[in-house]
Protein backbone atom coordinates (compact mmCIF):
# COMPACT_ATOMS: atom_id res chain seq x y z
CA UNK A 1 0.00 0.00 0.00
CA UNK A 2 1.70 3.16 -1.17
CA UNK A 3 1.55 6.17 1.05
CA UNK A 4 2.79 9.36 -0.54
CA UNK A 5 2.61 10.98 2.87
CA UNK A 6 4.00 14.45 3.28
CA UNK A 7 5.67 15.69 6.43
CA UNK A 8 3.53 18.82 6.62
CA UNK A 9 -0.01 18.26 7.85
CA UNK A 10 -2.95 19.60 5.89
CA UNK A 11 -5.14 19.41 9.02
CA UNK A 12 -4.18 19.46 12.69
CA UNK A 13 -6.37 19.47 15.76
CA UNK A 14 -4.98 20.52 19.11
CA UNK A 15 -6.82 20.25 22.42
CA UNK A 16 -10.29 20.00 20.89
CA UNK A 17 -13.00 19.66 23.55
CA UNK A 18 -16.78 19.57 23.34
CA UNK A 19 -19.42 19.14 26.02
CA UNK A 20 -23.18 18.72 25.73
CA UNK A 21 -24.59 19.80 29.07
CA UNK A 22 -22.85 17.69 31.69
CA UNK A 23 -21.55 15.16 29.16
CA UNK A 24 -17.98 15.60 27.93
CA UNK A 25 -18.15 14.25 24.37
CA UNK A 26 -14.54 15.15 23.53
CA UNK A 27 -11.64 16.11 25.80
CA UNK A 28 -8.28 17.45 24.56
CA UNK A 29 -8.31 15.68 21.21
CA UNK A 30 -5.20 15.92 19.01
CA UNK A 31 -5.15 14.68 15.43
CA UNK A 32 -2.90 15.15 12.40
CA UNK A 33 -3.76 14.43 8.77
CA UNK A 34 -1.22 14.79 5.98
CA UNK A 35 -1.94 15.12 2.27
CA UNK A 36 -2.18 11.71 0.59
CA UNK A 37 -2.72 9.98 3.92
CA UNK A 38 -5.69 7.93 5.13
CA UNK A 39 -6.25 8.28 8.87
CA UNK A 40 -8.75 5.83 10.33
CA UNK A 41 -10.52 6.94 13.50
CA UNK A 42 -11.81 4.03 15.52
CA UNK A 43 -13.55 3.76 18.84
CA UNK A 44 -16.47 2.19 20.62
CA UNK A 45 -19.99 3.64 20.56
CA UNK A 46 -19.95 6.90 22.50
CA UNK A 47 -16.21 7.39 22.03
CA UNK A 48 -16.79 10.75 20.33
CA UNK A 49 -16.18 9.83 16.69
CA UNK A 50 -19.42 11.38 15.41
CA UNK A 51 -18.89 14.52 17.49
CA UNK A 52 -15.42 14.92 15.99
CA UNK A 53 -16.88 14.56 12.48
CA UNK A 54 -19.54 17.16 13.27
CA UNK A 55 -16.93 19.62 14.55
CA UNK A 56 -14.80 19.22 11.42
CA UNK A 57 -17.82 19.48 9.12
CA UNK A 58 -19.13 22.66 10.77
CA UNK A 59 -22.23 21.16 12.37
CA UNK A 60 -21.02 21.83 15.95
CA UNK A 61 -18.38 24.36 17.04
CA UNK A 62 -15.76 23.09 19.53
CA UNK A 63 -15.84 24.54 23.06
CA UNK A 64 -12.06 24.86 23.13
CA UNK A 65 -8.97 23.91 21.19
CA UNK A 66 -7.43 24.86 17.88
CA UNK A 67 -8.05 23.71 14.30
CA UNK A 68 -5.14 24.34 11.93
CA UNK A 69 -5.92 23.92 8.24
CA UNK A 70 -3.27 24.55 5.60
CA UNK A 71 -0.98 26.10 8.25
CA UNK A 72 -3.66 28.60 9.29
CA UNK A 73 -5.76 28.54 12.46
CA UNK A 74 -9.40 28.41 11.35
CA UNK A 75 -12.94 28.30 12.68
CA UNK A 76 -15.64 26.16 11.08
CA UNK A 77 -18.99 27.65 12.14
CA UNK A 78 -21.18 26.10 9.41
CA UNK A 79 -21.13 23.27 6.84
CA UNK A 80 -20.83 25.94 4.13
CA UNK A 81 -17.71 27.29 5.86
CA UNK A 82 -16.21 23.78 5.88
CA UNK A 83 -16.89 23.50 2.11
CA UNK A 84 -15.24 26.85 1.48
CA UNK A 85 -12.15 25.88 3.48
CA UNK A 86 -11.74 22.61 1.60
CA UNK A 87 -13.07 20.10 4.12
CA UNK A 88 -15.69 17.80 2.64
CA UNK A 89 -17.71 15.28 4.62
CA UNK A 90 -19.53 12.15 3.52
CA UNK A 91 -21.94 11.46 6.38
CA UNK A 92 -22.97 7.99 7.46
CA UNK A 93 -26.51 8.48 6.13
CA UNK A 94 -24.90 10.14 3.04
CA UNK A 95 -27.12 13.26 3.38
CA UNK A 96 -28.52 12.88 -0.13
CA UNK A 97 -31.91 14.13 -1.30
CA UNK A 98 -33.61 11.00 -2.60
CA UNK A 99 -36.11 12.80 -4.85
CA UNK A 100 -33.40 14.76 -6.65
CA UNK A 101 -31.33 13.29 -9.44
CA UNK A 102 -27.58 12.65 -9.35
CA UNK A 103 -26.64 16.02 -10.89
CA UNK A 104 -28.88 17.95 -8.51
CA UNK A 105 -27.41 16.10 -5.53
CA UNK A 106 -23.82 16.54 -6.66
CA UNK A 107 -24.20 20.30 -7.03
CA UNK A 108 -26.61 20.93 -4.15
CA UNK A 109 -25.56 24.10 -2.36
CA UNK A 110 -22.88 24.83 -4.98
CA UNK A 111 -24.88 25.09 -8.21
CA UNK A 112 -23.24 26.69 -11.23
CA UNK A 113 -24.80 30.13 -11.81
CA UNK A 114 -27.50 31.12 -9.30
CA UNK A 115 -30.15 32.62 -11.58
CA UNK A 116 -29.91 30.57 -14.75
CA UNK A 117 -28.59 27.18 -13.70
CA UNK A 118 -25.98 25.84 -16.10
CA UNK A 119 -27.34 22.29 -16.37
CA UNK A 120 -25.15 21.35 -19.33
CA UNK A 121 -21.94 22.26 -17.51
CA UNK A 122 -23.15 20.51 -14.35
CA UNK A 123 -23.97 17.33 -16.26
CA UNK A 124 -20.58 17.36 -18.00
CA UNK A 125 -18.78 17.88 -14.69
CA UNK A 126 -20.88 15.13 -13.08
CA UNK A 127 -19.86 12.54 -15.68
CA UNK A 128 -16.28 13.76 -15.41
CA UNK A 129 -16.23 13.20 -11.64
CA UNK A 130 -17.92 9.82 -11.88
CA UNK A 131 -15.50 8.74 -14.60
CA UNK A 132 -12.55 9.66 -12.38
CA UNK A 133 -14.00 7.40 -9.70
CA UNK A 134 -14.78 4.62 -12.24
CA UNK A 135 -18.36 4.78 -11.02
CA UNK A 136 -21.06 2.37 -12.11
CA UNK A 137 -24.00 4.79 -12.37
CA UNK A 138 -26.73 4.11 -14.96
CA UNK A 139 -27.56 7.78 -15.57
CA UNK A 140 -27.03 11.11 -13.84
CA UNK A 141 -30.65 12.03 -14.52
CA UNK A 142 -32.23 9.30 -12.38
CA UNK A 143 -33.35 10.04 -8.81
CA UNK A 144 -30.88 8.95 -6.14
CA UNK A 145 -33.70 6.83 -4.66
CA UNK A 146 -33.27 4.44 -7.59
CA UNK A 147 -29.57 3.76 -6.91
CA UNK A 148 -28.01 0.93 -4.91
CA UNK A 149 -26.16 1.52 -1.62
CA UNK A 150 -22.75 1.43 -3.30
CA UNK A 151 -23.88 3.78 -6.06
CA UNK A 152 -25.24 6.24 -3.50
CA UNK A 153 -21.97 6.12 -1.59
CA UNK A 154 -20.18 6.85 -4.87
CA UNK A 155 -22.45 9.85 -5.52
CA UNK A 156 -21.80 11.15 -1.99
CA UNK A 157 -18.03 10.79 -2.44
CA UNK A 158 -18.16 12.37 -5.90
CA UNK A 159 -20.10 15.29 -4.42
CA UNK A 160 -17.45 15.75 -1.75
CA UNK A 161 -14.82 16.15 -4.50
CA UNK A 162 -16.68 18.97 -6.25
CA UNK A 163 -15.12 21.90 -4.46
CA UNK A 164 -11.59 20.47 -4.89
CA UNK A 165 -11.22 19.80 -1.16
CA UNK A 166 -7.94 19.01 0.58
CA UNK A 167 -9.48 16.81 3.27
CA UNK A 168 -12.34 14.35 2.97
CA UNK A 169 -14.07 12.86 6.00
CA UNK A 170 -15.83 9.53 5.46
CA UNK A 171 -18.17 8.58 8.29
CA UNK A 172 -18.65 4.78 8.32
CA UNK A 173 -18.45 4.56 4.51
CA UNK A 174 -18.95 0.79 4.34
CA UNK A 175 -21.65 0.40 6.99
CA UNK A 176 -24.65 -1.58 5.68
CA UNK A 177 -22.93 -2.41 2.37
CA UNK A 178 -22.43 -5.85 0.86
CA UNK A 179 -19.02 -7.36 0.07
CA UNK A 180 -18.86 -6.14 -3.55
CA UNK A 181 -20.10 -2.66 -2.65
CA UNK A 182 -17.61 -2.44 0.23
CA UNK A 183 -14.76 -3.30 -2.14
CA UNK A 184 -16.05 -0.61 -4.52
CA UNK A 185 -15.99 2.01 -1.75
CA UNK A 186 -12.53 0.98 -0.51
CA UNK A 187 -11.27 1.36 -4.09
CA UNK A 188 -12.66 4.89 -4.03
CA UNK A 189 -10.74 5.61 -0.81
CA UNK A 190 -7.54 4.44 -2.53
CA UNK A 191 -8.27 6.80 -5.41
CA UNK A 192 -8.76 9.70 -3.02
CA UNK A 193 -5.35 8.96 -1.51
CA UNK A 194 -3.78 8.79 -4.98
CA UNK A 195 -5.18 12.25 -5.69
CA UNK A 196 -3.17 13.56 -2.74
CA UNK A 197 -6.13 14.22 -0.47
CA UNK A 198 -6.06 13.86 3.27
CA UNK A 199 -8.71 11.27 4.18
CA UNK A 200 -10.25 10.76 7.61
CA UNK A 201 -12.20 7.52 7.74
CA UNK A 202 -14.42 6.66 10.69
CA UNK A 203 -14.86 2.91 10.87
CA UNK A 204 -15.79 -0.03 13.05
CA UNK A 205 -14.48 -2.55 10.56
CA UNK A 206 -10.89 -3.61 11.27
CA UNK A 207 -10.56 -5.31 7.88
CA UNK A 208 -11.43 -2.04 6.13
CA UNK A 209 -9.01 -0.13 8.34
CA UNK A 210 -6.17 -2.56 7.58
CA UNK A 211 -7.03 -2.48 3.87
CA UNK A 212 -6.78 1.26 3.25
CA UNK A 213 -5.56 3.23 6.29
CA UNK A 214 -2.02 4.47 6.88
CA UNK A 215 -2.60 5.53 10.48
CA UNK A 216 -5.16 4.50 13.09
CA UNK A 217 -6.23 6.99 15.76
CA UNK A 218 -8.16 5.47 18.65
CA UNK A 219 -10.74 7.42 20.64
CA UNK A 220 -11.92 6.14 23.98
CA UNK A 221 -14.50 7.92 26.13
CA UNK A 222 -13.88 11.16 24.25
CA UNK A 223 -10.09 11.11 24.63
CA UNK A 224 -7.11 10.10 22.50
CA UNK A 225 -6.09 6.55 23.33
CA UNK A 226 -3.26 5.99 20.89
CA UNK A 227 -2.17 6.64 17.31
CA UNK A 228 -0.73 3.65 15.44
CA UNK A 229 0.95 3.01 12.12
CA UNK A 230 -1.29 0.43 10.46
CA UNK A 231 1.70 -1.68 9.35
CA UNK A 232 3.09 -1.93 12.88
CA UNK A 233 -0.06 -2.78 14.80
CA UNK A 234 -2.25 -5.85 15.11
CA UNK A 235 -6.06 -5.77 15.24
CA UNK A 236 -5.78 -7.06 18.82
CA UNK A 237 -3.73 -4.03 19.87
CA UNK A 238 -6.28 -1.71 18.29
CA UNK A 239 -9.16 -3.51 20.02
CA UNK A 240 -7.27 -3.30 23.31
CA UNK A 241 -6.92 0.46 22.84
CA UNK A 242 -10.61 0.79 21.90
CA UNK A 243 -11.86 -1.18 24.90
CA UNK A 244 -9.20 0.09 27.27
CA UNK A 245 -8.36 -3.44 28.32
CA UNK A 246 -5.34 -5.47 27.33
CA UNK A 247 -7.01 -8.60 28.65
CA UNK A 248 -10.07 -9.25 26.51
CA UNK A 249 -11.67 -12.10 24.56
CA UNK A 250 -9.75 -11.29 21.39
CA UNK A 251 -6.34 -11.11 23.08
CA UNK A 252 -7.08 -14.27 25.08
CA UNK A 253 -8.01 -16.17 21.91
CA UNK A 254 -4.84 -14.87 20.24
CA UNK A 255 -2.73 -16.01 23.22
CA UNK A 256 -4.31 -19.47 23.13
CA UNK A 257 -3.55 -19.72 19.41
CA UNK A 258 0.08 -18.79 20.02
CA UNK A 259 0.37 -21.38 22.80
CA UNK A 260 -1.11 -24.01 20.50
CA UNK A 261 1.39 -23.16 17.78
CA UNK A 262 4.42 -23.18 20.09
CA UNK A 263 3.58 -26.53 21.72
Amino acid sequence: MSSNQQSDNVLSLRGISKTFGAVAALTDIDLDVAAGQVVAIVGDNGAGKSTLVKILSGVHPPDSGKIVFDSKTVEIPTPAAAHRLGIATVFQDLALCENLNVIQNLFLGQELRPLRLNDVAMETRSWDLLRQLSAKIPSVRVPVASLSGGQRQTVAIARSLLGDPKVIILDEPTAALGVAQTAEVLNLVERLRERGLGVIMISHNMADVKAVADTVAVLRLGRNNGVFDVNDVSPEDIIAAITGATDNAVSQRQARRKEGLSS
Binding site: V59, L96, G109
Partner: peptide, 9 residues
Protein backbone atom coordinates in the same frame (compact mmCIF):
# COMPACT_ATOMS: atom_id res chain seq x y z
CA UNK B 1 -34.44 16.07 3.01
CA UNK B 2 -34.01 19.13 5.24
CA UNK B 3 -30.93 17.62 6.92
CA UNK B 4 -29.23 16.76 3.63
CA UNK B 5 -29.96 20.25 2.32
CA UNK B 6 -28.60 21.85 5.50
CA UNK B 7 -25.41 19.76 5.40
CA UNK B 8 -24.94 20.67 1.73
CA UNK B 9 -24.80 24.33 2.70
Amino acid sequence: SPRAARLSG
